[in-house]
Computed example of a mutant assay.
Amino acid sequence: MGGRESPLILASRSPRRKALLEALGYPLRVVFPEGEEEDLDLPPKALAQALARRKGEGVEGDWVLAADTVVDLEGKVLGKPQDPEENRLFLRLLSGRAHLVHTALYLRTPHDVVEEVHTARVRFRSLSEEEIAWYVGSGEGLDKAGGYGAQGLGMALLEGVEGDFYTVVGLPVSRVFALLWERGFRP
């Protein structure tokens, strides 16, 4: 079964995930899953997996990919900030520290279901209040787990990433490509 006969259905609202898959040339259809942002009382890594599974299971289709990213600061989940004030708080918490980013995958094919969680470690520089105000003022962090985007203006906040950079962005692209390729789904 090849990729051109049926599209890959992306169960995600993330424009970043869509852009990454389109950059690889996959035929793609985006379906917004319902209820994806509900809170569950789970540790960060398990939460990422549960949310990815919920998104994927909520969408019909032969080839369905869902993902969810959770920022984990010493076991505490930093979700998407509710407002600029919470974004400012998150950046203060992350400033000068390392944290984990877990991105979970849910891939359903005509033959199997694959669920995985990929983790990267991110180190933030020590940020001044002026730098935090600049970033919060951009609005970029409001729709992103942890309140920052590593691929955008947020790149100025990072000191380093250990692991797959694209896990931090929200989709471990190399692994997704390999999983699809192994199952005969080609771009």
Rank of each mutant, 00 (worst) to 15 (best):
Y26C: 04
V77H: 09
A19C: 02
D62A: 15
L40D: 00
Q49C: 07
R97D: 00
L158F: 10
V77W: 12
S174M: 05
P44Y: 05
V64T: 11
W181P: 04
Y148C: 03
V168F: 02
L73I: 10
E37L: 13
L107C: 03
W181N: 05
L10A: 11
A66C: 02
R183Y: 11
P110H: 04
P15V: 13
R88C: 00
L171C: 09
L94A: 04
E115Q: 12
G146H: 10
V161M: 04
A19L: 05
G61Q: 13
R29T: 13
H111P: 00
K45P: 02
M1H: 12
S128I: 01
K45M: 13
L89H: 09
R4H: 09
L42K: 06
G154K: 13
T167Q: 08
P7N: 12
L40V: 04
R125W: 10
Y26F: 15
L153C: 00
E162G: 01
A52T: 13
P81I: 10
D164Q: 08
E22P: 00
A156E: 11
R175H: 05
D164L: 10
Y135C: 03
L40E: 09
W181M: 07
L21K: 10
D112K: 04
R121C: 01
L42C: 07
L107T: 04
E182H: 07
T103A: 05
R53G: 03
